[in-house]
Nucleic acid binder design. Structure first.
Length: 1010
RNA sequence: GCCCAGAUGGCGGAAUUGGUAGACGCGAUGGACUCAAAAUCCAUUGAUGGCAACAUCAUGAGAGUUCGAUUCUCUCUCUGGGCACCA
């Protein structure tokens, strides 16, 4: 047989598949569909490195097994080619960005082709193709012409809203077009507004975050030229993604996605349930605040407005220190801008500490108790979240606490902590009654040193301060003194202070065998001298007295939450942030936080509301290389859509791709464009990628983005593979658009991607990311040339779990290469003998007895076990262990004298998704006439998988001491008997008493000795 | 600071309804084949002690639950990712 020349073989079959259209998806098929999708790449100038194909290989293997299992598989590929790098290239070389894209696409295609993917290239899409972006523009217009109907909880055409407004609002009809449009703009799902951009005056352009660097003083400057960058408010288009926030969050539950991606999206959306509460003021202007802690309303000691609060001017003009306050606002805004810029670049926002200024003379009135509190402006309050104002409760909010400490504002405790022990020896026992007790905790300081008196209990390992019950009618301080004297013997105490609130604790009292609900008062004493009386014997047995250094007390009492809390409150005066029990809150005293939130909100006429961290998405770039937004600004100030018939609105040619100096896109420099009133912003990068998976279903359709029948057949993506860096971008935007299309009746599912898998990164040898910058890039072309595509594919799957980051190691590739050569050699062996010698070994016909036949049987058993394992592993995307199983099978086959040719073919079939070229070559060499890649998937025989004889371990006290061989179905009593009789076991059990014997079926026996 | 994930030989990694830790691969050492080399094959390869049989220790650290813990619980350390004044 021929030598294994991977270059020749791989080229040959790639050509074969191409001409025979082996991987072309069937158009009208009665087969079940299966849609396997990769995140399409941005074709960058530097091409692929070996990290890029990892995800593609995984999804390709998945697509291949599905194809072999008889599904009609859609496995397409395309290019997401709008964006900055191509534009940059255009500016530098003064060529049309399309040229750069064409060139890069060519490189990508040739690199991908070498790896032997089973893409159906006839369905390729490219976001920069006018025939494609025609439909991106079309979808944009549908979004623009829709609003979110809160009652129906879905998007509806804006025409419905107009009708509604005409019915309900008499004035609406009388309004001018401009005025009507203004109102509608507040409802449209795509709307015009203002937002801040990074503006570089010197370059006369808006910069993306990654075009900005820090200069040596930490100020933001342009990467090109090093010119200062500032924030500038500019007209932008937005998408009202926040309308979908609830659905985007709650629908995550039904998705088969990696947990952490769901977590990231959930955090990003950031739902908080809280209350909006109005504070009246002494100047006839209310301040509305948002809080999640309405239960702390009685603890409000001041109110804070954001420097960027929309109505700040109204308060400013009536304050007594207007000049000073406006100066503060100006400076604060500047700082915030800089902070924002840092945040966008992923740097710390620069928490130099909170600053603020009081608006003198202005008072807010607490609606809960009528108390007047001061009004402040503070830079720690965000204008863009909630209402832009907060009620400050320093006792129960860390930020307010910090601010109050800095500006000497009062603190008022209204939530008493409650600790419920759940685990451990003092965890509350579920079926036992709770007994309420009033009690006292005493913190006792040493008479001369910086030490505190602690107790370490002997019965359990409880550590804390002096604790005791209060007897009926007893004075609090004397109760404390009595306890200290009884438990420690110290006599001369000086009372210092008392914690102004109680601490509640539920726990199990081991000595008294009771569930306790204790209400602690906390007292602070100092010893006057060292006088100490001898303790009663029973007290001595209970606990040790320990003097603990002040610095070490926190650690000493750390095993007990409430003791540690007491210490921290007294010594570090920390805010209590958790829920608890209300106090100093009039009629609400004694309620839990949760109950109180609703009741207090109701009481003050507030509203329960939901807020989101997520903001509406900016849908505009001030750049050339993107989809034109199909809107026309008319002279009268209204905006109209480009008629559907005129789509695509084609990107015009420009003479220069340079920014034009006003911050607008180069399109603003095209006379005809501006004259026509066309929008000069272009769409952001995420537009084209938010729906491309739908276009693959029907990529050449001229009448719609995809035909209804095709959409109905393909429905949604069954498996989506890509990097986790798109968690809050592409994956969120796609879900948003898809939900919109679902609401509008264009797609049958409300979620586009049923199952999502994230391939892990491939790091370079040096542990860094592969990048031109580090010079550590490995090009797959080189690997394919030296080792072959099949080897590369197997290596990338074998190197570690698919979803985890692993380091590339070119030395290790030799393993998978040897494996393929082994498979090749086995093929040679199989083919060396006349076929007739093999046919008769079909199973069922094997005679027991001879060692040769015996090895055939065990090989066949192994084959069927391997088929099972590989099938299940691919389904679960555990490619590394699938490869490992096939390596074991190959080694056994090579050792074996006789190999059943049909068995060998089955092996080739399960290997084919991983190594399509070499298996195809061998498959045809064995006389097959049709591609192995559509040959069907072998099934395993359950009977052959079961072993009759199994080896199990025998443990003595949990340690393996012997191994015995037993029939798989042997009864427990017999197994235990056999185990005990084993020589090695006897050695250990001799003269010992066996107290327990355990048999875990098919696994092990454990003999427990006393 | 908060949230999430993770930590296993020289290296990549395997093993979970709690049941023989280190599969498979790389590397290393020794051997067979060869004039020689490459390739291939065979053997050994967690650590310590021992001629050996074998024993002890070992899954980031410490505790706990259990006949038995890489797997479950708690605390801590480190690494990666996300968020970052979101009230």
């Amino acid at each position: 047989m021929k030598e294994y020349d991977h270059n020749k073989i791989e080229k040959k079959w790639q050509k074969f598949w191409d001409t025979k259209k082996t991987y072309q998806t069937e158009n009208k098929s009665k087969k079940k569909k299966f849609y396997v999708l990769d995140m399409f790449p941005y074709p960058s100038g530097s091409g692929l490195h070996v990290g890029h194909p990892r995800g593609y290989i995984g999804s390709d293997i998945y697509a291949r097994i599905k194809r072999m299992q008889g599904f009609n598989v859609l496995h397409p590929m395309g290019y997401d080619a709008f964006g900055l790098p191509a534009e940059q290239y255009a500016i530098e070389h003064n060529v049309h960005p399309r040229k750069a894209v064409e060139k890069n696409v060519k490189t990508f295609r040739s690199q991908l082709d070498k790896i032997g993917f089973s893409f159906d290239w006839s369905r390729q899409v490219n976001t920069t193709d006018p025939e494609y972006y025609k439909w991106t523009q079309w979808i944009f217009l549908q979004i623009y012409n829709s609003y979110y109907d809160a009652e129906k909880n879905k998007a509806r055409p804006i025409s419905e809203l107009i009708k509604k407004l005409e019915k309900t609002d008499r004035n609406f009809k009388k309004l001018s077009e401009i005025e009507k449009e203004k109102i509608l703009m507040n409802y449209r799902l795509a709307y015009e507004g203002y937002s801040e951009v990074n503006w570089c005056p010197k370059l006369g352009t808006v910069l993306a975050n990654d075009e900005i660097v820090d200069d040596k003083d930490g100020n933001p400057v342009s990467e090109r030229g090093g010119y200062p960058v500032e924030k500038k408010s500019m007209r932008q288009w937005f998408m009202r993604i926040t309308a979908y926030a609830d659905r985007l969050a709650s629908d995550l539950d039904g998705l088969n996605w990696p947990q952490h991606i769901k977590e990231i999206q959930k955090n990003w959306i950031g739902i908080s349930h809280g209350s909006e509460i109005e504070f009246k003021t002494n100047i006839d202007r209310n301040i509305k605040v948002f809080t999640t802690r309405a239960d702390t309303l009685f603890g409000v000691t001041y109110v804070v407005l954001s420097p960027e609060h929309t109505n700040i001017g109204e308060f400013l003009v009536q304050s007594q220190n207007m000049a000073e306050a406006s100066k503060y606002i100006r400076e604060a805004k500047e700082r915030l801008n800089k902070g924002d810029m840092n945040r966008e670049k992923g740097l710390p926002a620069g928490e130099a500490g909170k600053t603020g200024i009081e608006l003198k003379g202005i008072k807010a009135i607490n609606p809960a108790n009528g108390e007047e509190v001061p009004v402040w402006i503070g830079d720690y309050v965000l204008a863009s979240y909630g209402t832009g104002a907060v009620m400050a409760v320093p006792a129960h909010d860390e930020r307010d606490f910090e601010f109050a400490k800095k500006y000497n504002l009062p603190t008022k405790q209204v939530i008493e902590p409650i600790f419920i022990k759940k685990n451990g020896s003092d965890g509350v026992k579920p079926n036992l009654e709770l007994i309420e007790r009033n009690a006292v905790v005493c913190v006792v300081e040493h008479w001369s040193e910086k030490k505190f008196l602690c107790l370490a209990w002997k019965k359990n390992d409880w550590k804390g301060f002096v604790v005791g019950g209060i007897e009926n009618g007893e004075n609090l301080i004397s109760a404390g003194e009595r306890e200290i004297k009884e438990e420690t013997g110290y006599q001369n105490l000086e009372y210092i202070k008392k914690l102004e609130y109680k601490i509640h604790s539920q726990f199990y009292h081991e000595v008294k065998k009771q569930n306790r609900f204790a209400h602690f008062d906390v007292l602070y004493f100092k010893l006057k001298d060292s006088e100490q009386k001898e303790l009663a014997e029973e007290e001595k047995l209970l606990h040790d007295l320990v003097w603990v250094d002040k610095e070490k007390v926190d650690a000493f009492v750390s095993t007990d939450e409430d003791m540690q809390f007491i210490w921290r409150v007294f010594i570090k005066s920390q805010a209590y942030l958790s829920d608890g029990i209300l106090s100093h809150s009039n009629q609400f005293d004694g309620l839990t936080s949760e109950e109180a939130r609703k009741k207090i909100t109701e009481f003050v006429g507030g509203k329960l509301v939901t807020k989101y961290k997520m903001r509406d998405a900016i849908f505009a770039r001030q750049r050339y290389w993107g989809e034109p937004i199909p809107l026309i600004h008319k002279k009268d100030g209204t905006v109209v859509a480009v008629p559907e018939k005129k789509l695509p609105l084609v990107l015009p040619n420009v003479t220069s791709y340079e920014p034009i100096g006003t911050g607008e896109s180069p399109l603003a420099g095209v006379k005809a464009w501006v004259k026509g009133g066309y929008e000069t912003n272009t769409m952001p990068g995420w537009a084209g990628s938010s729906w491309y998976f739908l276009r693959y279903m029907d990529p050449k359709n001229k009448k719609s983005f995809a035909d209804k029948k095709n959409i109905k057949y393909w429905k949604d993506v069954d498996l989506y593979v890509g990097g986790q860096e798109h968690a809050t971008g592409h994956l969120l935007y796609s879900r948003f658009w898809h939900k919109f299309l679902y609401d509008s009746g264009y797609v049958p599912t409300s979620e586009p991607f049923k199952t999502l898998k994230n391939q892990g990164l491939i790091m370079a040898n040096d542990g860094r990311k592969m990048s031109k910058r580090w010079g550590n890039v490995v090009n797959p072309d080189d690997i394919v040339k030296i080792y072959g595509a099949d080897t590369l594919r197997i290596y990338e799957m074998f190197m570690g779990p698919f979803e985890e980051t692993v380091a590339w190691n070119t030395d290790s590739i030799i393993g998978p290469r040897r494996f393929i050569e082994k498979v090749w050699r086995i093929g040679e062996k199989v083919m060396a003998k006349p076929k007739n010698n093999f046919g008769r070994y079909a199973f069922g016909g094997i005679q027991q007895g001879s060692s040769q036949n015996h090895s055939l049987v065990s090989l066949q058993k192994l084959l069927h076990k391997t088929i099972k394992k590989v099938t299940e592993d691919i389904e679960a995307m555990r490619f590394n262990t699938a490869v490992s199983a096939m390596m074991i099978l190959a080694s056994e086959m090579e050792k074996s004298e006789n190999i059943n040719i049909e068995d060998y073919k089955k092996f080739l079939q399960i290997l084919a998704p991983f190594a399509p070229h070499v298996t195809e070559e061998l498959w045809f060499s064995l006389g097959e006439k049709k591609s192995i890649n559509i040959s069907g998937w072998p099934k395993w025989n359950e009977k052959l998988i079961k072993d009759e004889e199994i080896k199990i371990a025998v443990q003595i006290n949990g340690k393996v001491r012997a191994e015995i061989e037993i029939p798989a179905d042997m009864l427990e009593a017999d197994v235990l008997d056999l185990a005990e009789k084993n020589e090695n076991v006897k050695k250990w059990t001799e003269g010992k008493i066996i107290i327990k014997k355990i048999y875990v079926k098919g696994r092990l026996v454990n003999i427990v000795l006393s």
